[in-house]
């Protein structure tokens, strides 16, 4: 019976494969996490692979998703490191501790700027964080101090100095780390610039949080998906639209788009590194110390990542768009990494 032979042969092949894989120990580093840090970690991974040994596998799962996988436990079934476009949260750290991931080493690798940009053929924008907040918040305090739906239709309604164009902002969706950072860096400080909300923060900080975390849904803000290249293409096609994305995309597409000045700082490499452009965030990689010596190469990975040729002033990561740490801070990060000092509860 040909058919039956084929079936049993197939079943046999499959079960061997399954069994063989189950017993295998891992000899390849696995990294998960943020899509913002992905271009940098992949470059490090590739360098490590070229130096010999297996190239680490880097997965792009988003910061939150990465933390969840990372903190799920210790052992070869769990990743060795996770990328994060924000610091680990207390709740995530507790989750790690609960699952036995007690020794987590934090590497701060550099900065990423978030830019507000529009097409080269559009008007030059000079904004303040408060103006951006007023343009994008779902609710704003009215004349009586009560919260009402955002009344602004055009940029010039907010401030006469801004162009008389419809507010049309393309930005990252709620799942994105860029969105989280944008909310914290721009919307929160922007909201504090509105007097009525400053009072609200004192009176009821939860209600205040709700105000700056809510982005309007009446069509002025458009979720453009995780693909920043797509936002760039849309901006090029529509000079009236404004987009929000990571600095490296502005740098790579300088021929098509230009960044807006925010709170007096223009988004340039130097300004982000020096801190005079305020809309920037630190990027992190978290390492599971318990995997050093279990999965070969974890220590080498850390060594390569914090080496001067990677995150240094002229390192290869800076040519990939990472904005390096100031020299002093970098020395501290390198020391920390060499000692593999785990994060403690006192860090929060």
């Amino acid at each position: 019976m040909k058919f039956a032979t084929f079936t049993s042969a197939a079943a046999l092949v499959l079960s061997t494969v399954v069994l063989a894989s189950g017993a295998q120990a891992r000899d390849q580093i696995r990294v998960v996490g943020s899509s913002t840090v992905y271009p940098f970690t992949t470059a490090v991974a590739e360098q490590l692979g070229k130096a010999g040994g297996k190239t680490p596998v880097v997965e792009s799962t988003g910061t939150g998703g990465g933390m969840k996988l990372f903190c799920a436990g210790v052992g070869v079934d769990h990743p060795d490191a996770t990328n994060a476009s924000r610091r680990i949260k207390k709740s995530e750290f507790d989750d790690c501790q609960k699952n036995g991931v007690t020794d987590v080493v934090e590497l701060k690798i550099g900065f990423d700027g978030i830019v507000i940009a529009n097409s080269k053929s559009g008007p030059d924008l000079t904004l303040t964080k408060t103006q951006v907040f007023q343009a994008l918040a779902r609710e704003l305090p009215g004349a009586d101090g009560k919260l009402a739906p955002n009344p602004y239709k055009n940029w010039s309604d907010i401030d006469a100095s801004l162009p008389n164009e419809k507010i049309e902002v393309l930005g990252p969706p709620p799942t994105s780390g860029t969105r989280d950072a944008f909310l914290e860096l721009v919307m929160e400080t922007g909201a504090e610039g509105v007097p009525a909300l400053k009072d609200l923060k004192k009176a009821d900080s939860k209600a205040f949080d709700k105000v700056w975390k809510s982005i309007r849904e009446d069509g002025a803000y458009i979720d453009a998906g995780e693909n920043d290249n797509l936002i760039v293409q849309k901006l090029e096609a529509n000079p009236k639209a404004v987009g929000i994305f990571g600095y490296s995309f502005l740098e790579e597409n300088a021929s098509k788009i230009k960044g807006a000045t925010v709170d007096g700082g223009t988004p340039t490499f130097e300004n982000i590194a020096s801190g005079s452009y305020k809309v920037s965030r630190p990027l992190f990689v978290y390492i599971k110390k318990q995997h050093v010596g279990v999965v070969p190469g974890v220590d080498k990975f850390v060594e390569e990542y914090v080496s001067d040729k990677a995150i240094g002033e002229d390192g290869y990561l800076s040519s990939k768009g990472l904005i390096p740490l100031p020299a002093e801070e970098r020395t501290k990060v390198v020391e920390n990494a060499k000692a593999m000092k785990p994060l403690g509860a006192e860090a929060f």
């Binding site: 494969v17 390849q28 271009p39 692979g49 880097v58 290249n229």
Partner: peptide
């Protein structure tokens, strides 16, 4: 959906697939 440099030599090696590779490359800034 991962960055994998080594070419897989069997079904239990880490790998991506063609449509995933297209998606990953389309998202890179260079």
């Amino acid at each position: 959906v991962a960055f994998i440099v080594d070419v897989p030599s069997g079904p239990t090696d880490a790998a991506t697939a063609l449509p995933v590779q297209i998606y990953l490359w389309s998202d890179l800034p260079e």
